[in-house]
């Protein structure tokens, strides 16, 4: 039998991990059961779900990108004040004065773009595989909400550097709200906190970007994963793509 780490075998280790053996299937299931991080996963999945062809791993890729965005985003928050007077300068000094500042900002920017692509591609792959079919309809709807949240997160983040690209892209983007019947003006002016993009807008987008939307996204993601976990044992009888007639 393989030796477990001494820490896991110790009193404290046992109190944390509960189940320390990892040899038999039963051990692994028990370890799974006792682990907070692993409880996101089901204990068993259908074998077809392991392969690249099943999902192209796009869901995992999206989740990994989301986590990397949270990490790099928190780092960026230490060097950024959301006001028109300082935002642009903060980004500039991030590039020049902060160790790895430019790199972290690059990471945040490119991971955000990649995440939009990954989430959209995930939706497309799920569609083509027919994985939204009963009884999994509702998880598809939750996924659509996550796609929207991803777009909103990316869009609110777009304003924060307060450069020409940001200012006018957000001006144009929010002007579309004007054409919503009846409430158009009110919606746009509430989004902007004024008649045009200004300091109030920057603050609002910042709060949405770093607090409101990420919390919402994580909450909805938990529902998404929980539903996936519950459905992992489903045996789709007429799944013609994977079962020979």
């Amino acid at each position: 039998m393989r030796r477990q780490s001494p820490f896991r075998e110790s009193t404290i280790g046992r109190s944390i991990f509960r189940s320390t053996e990892r040899e038999t299937t039963r051990d692994r299931a028990a370890g799974h059961w006792a682990s907070f991080l692993l409880h996101v996963y089901p204990v068993k999945v259908r074998r077809r779900e392991l392969g690249f062809r099943y999902s192209w791993y796009l869901g995992v890729i999206s989740a990994v990108l989301l986590i990397s965005l949270v990490v790099s985003g928190v780092y960026l928050m230490f060097f950024y004040v959301p006001s028109p007077a300082s935002a642009y300068g903060d980004i500039q000094s991030l590039h020049t004065d902060v160790a790895f500042g430019q790199f972290i900002r690059n990471t945040h920017r490119w991971a955000a773009h990649l995440m939009v692509i990954a989430v959209a591609a995930h939706a497309a792959r799920v569609f083509y595989r027919g994985a939204y079919k009963p009884p999994r309809e509702f998880n598809w709807v939750v996924g659509v909400v996550l796609l929207l949240l991803t777009l909103l997160l990316s869009f609110t983040g777009y304003l924060l550097p307060w450069d020409q690209l940001a200012y006018w892209a957000v001006t144009v983007g929010t002007s579309m709200a004007d054409f919503v019947p009846i409430f158009g003006d009110v919606i746009r002016e509430t989004l902007l906190g004024g008649t045009q993009v200004g300091s109030e807008t920057l603050l609002r987008f910042y709060v949405l970007h770093v607090a409101v939307l990420p919390l919402l996204a994580f909450g909805v993601l938990m529902i998404h994963l929980w539903r996936w976990r519950k459905d992992s044992m489903l045996d789709i009888a007429n799944d013609e793509e994977f079962v020979d007639e």
């Binding site: 692994r28 089901p42 068993k44 259908r46 392991l50 044992m233 045996d235 994977f242």
Partner: peptide, 8 residues
């Protein structure tokens, strides 16, 4: 394909 395998 339909067999159940351990996630871990």
């Amino acid at each position: 394909d339909q067999d159940l395998v351990m996630v871990w």
